[in-house]
């Protein structure tokens, strides 16, 4: 599904990703871990198509097609979804209208008519129940004045609405209390199927107790320096990242 080959990327001439190789197949859950500043969020943004990041070398293939030249919205239309570490506040645009616009723009790109209002409402009801989101919440301005947990829950709600093929969850666990974490993880797990894939970017192992990865990768200094099964996450939790740094620097 996703095939990243020798990916180099920089922002304002500062090189951040220095040769990433990663392959994600349908049905898989990958976790990307690593110390602060290792390039985790950059990788997520580059896959999603943030313009400020320049791909200087290598390529990103999604379902057999190079996507690094595509605009962010085109990648979204193909089924790439990024849950933001810091969801942006958009005053004046309600959650509901934002989702309506997003879904209908995706449909437009596929040559489909707008989703009938009745179906839209039904979908919103269904998915908000999945994430245990209060109806009143949906008429509020997107992310404005939301608590950290509400923002993250709202990200997964959007994911549920858009049903992406590849979901990248960037530090979705940060700012979540244990109940919110359970709700969010439960949401992700319910959306999981053999046809879609999830990449979880996290600093801590905590979320991986709920969203269990098939593969764990350690990103350090712009490269994936170690890969393993879910037990690697436990090892990192116990030992921290210093031993990885030592291994790499040795």
């Amino acid at each position: 599904m996703l095939k990243i080959d020798n990916l180099h990327a920089s922002v304002e001439d500062k090189s951040i990703l220095k040769g990433i190789n990663l392959e994600v197949k349908p049905g898989e859950v990958h976790a990307i871990m690593g110390p602060n500043g290792s390039g985790k969020s950059t990788l997520a943004s580059v896959i999603a198509g943030k313009e400020e990041y320049e791909v200087t070398k290598g390529n990103i293939e999604f379902e057999g097609e190079d996507i690094e030249e595509l605009a962010a919205e085109e990648r979204a239309h193909k089924g790439v979804f990024l849950s933001f570490q810091y969801p942006v506040e958009i005053p004046g645009v309600s959650v509901t209208n934002f989702m309506k616009t997003a879904i209908n723009e995706s449909r437009k790109a596929k040559g489909l008519e707008d989703m009938p209002a009745k179906d839209m409402l039904k979908l919103i009801r269904e998915k908000s129940e999945l994430l245990e989101i209060d109806r009143k919440f949906l008429s509020r301005s997107l992310n404005e004045g939301f608590s950290g947990g509400e923002k993250k829950r709202n990200e997964i709600f959007q994911m549920a609405m858009l049903e992406p093929k590849l979901a990248i969850l960037d530090e979705t666990d940060s700012g979540l209390d244990i109940d919110a974490l359970r709700i969010v993880a439960n949401g992700v797990n319910k959306l999981k199927s053999n046809d879609n894939a999830v990449v979880v970017i996290t600093h801590y192992q905590r979320l991986l107790d709920y969203i269990v990865p098939d593969f764990v990768h350690v990103l350090y200094n712009g490269r994936i320096v170690k890969s393993g099964g879910k037990e690697l996450a436990h090892e990192l939790e116990e030992k921290g990242y210093d031993w990885i740094k030592e291994e790499v620097n040795a």
Binding site: E73, F84, V88, G92, T101, E105, L162
Partner: peptide, 29 residues
């Protein structure tokens, strides 16, 4: 706000429409 534009684009809203929505929201008061 560029970060708001990217956020909206990443949800499938093209840049032009995202800009329009932000501008509309700006005047919505």
């Amino acid at each position: 706000d560029e970060s708001a534009l990217f956020y909206m684009q990443s949800r499938g809203i093209p840049k032009k429409e995202a800009k329009a929505l932000l501008m509309y929201a700006f005047s919505n008061n």
